[in-house]
């Protein structure tokens, strides 16, 4: 019981902090979550985090909220989900409620504008750090299929601007095809083994 309370508190603290510092889109918070939950807290393995990202991206609604729901569910069931949502939703709610009263001043403040602009360099560095680790692991699988899927998806997104959802669906199709081929192959192998056994 005490253990569960501790996990819930950690979950709330982590999602709250991540949400408070996430500028610029769903994939930023996913990179931060990977660093926090996979590398620091070691609650999830890397593959799991990537799966969660794929599900969060393909479901309707804000990606950070979607990822929090799944993460929270994984740690403490529905209660965990609710706690993670609260942690993710509170910081923007607090900040925006405060700002909505004096947003004209906020928008024209030089220091805030500069800080927000330069912070992008730090955010980009964090994402690159995470991506370097992730890409290394894809290469480490030594499967040509996975490495070429990664390169193809990157080119498709960056150069041709193909929608993330379509890319995920396309890779899902490749995965299913891969599964069917593997299953067929193992079937014929079994048959061959049986045949050889009969010949002897």
């Amino acid at each position: 019981m005490k253990e569960k309370k501790h996990v819930l508190w950690q979950l709330f603290k982590a999602t709250f902090m991540l949400s408070a510092f996430t500028f610029g889109g769903g994939f930023v918070i996913v990179s931060l979550m990977k660093k926090k939950f996979v590398e620091e807290l070691k609650w999830l393995d890397e593959d799991e985090m990537l799966d969660i990202t794929a599900i969060a991206q393909s479901s309707p609604g804000p990606i950070p909220i979607n990822a929090s729901v799944i993460l929270g569910y994984r740690m403490c069931g529905i209660v965990g989900s609710l706690v993670a949502i609260l942690g993710t939703a509170l910081p923007p709610m607090i900040i925006i409620s405060l700002i909505s009263y004096f947003y004209a001043q906020f928008r024209s403040n030089q220091i805030i504008a500069t800080a927000l602009m330069v912070m992008r360099a730090g955010v980009a560095a964090v994402i690159f750090d995470v991506v370097i680790n992730l890409a290394k692991n894809v290469v480490a699988t030594k499967r040509v299929l996975y490495i070429s899927l990664m390169i193809a998806a990157f080119i498709a997104k960056v150069i041709f601007g193909i929608d993330a959802m379509i890319l995920i669906l396309a890779c899902l199709a490749v995965g299913i095809a891969d599964l069917i081929i593997t299953l067929k192959r193992s079937k014929t192998e079994k048959k061959e083994v049986l045949k050889e056994g009969a010949n002897i």
Binding site: Q57, A124, K157, I168, G175, I176, L179
Partner: peptide, 29 residues
């Protein structure tokens, strides 16, 4: 079987995170 299918999905997610990072980097620099 589910693992085989998901394994093909993960490289794409890595690429998507990478492209998000690249956009922010270009915007920053």
């Amino acid at each position: 079987g589910v693992q085989t299918v998901l394994s093909a999905l993960r490289p794409a997610v890595v690429a998507l995170i990478g492209s998000a990072g690249l956009s922010i980097l270009l915007l920053g620099i």
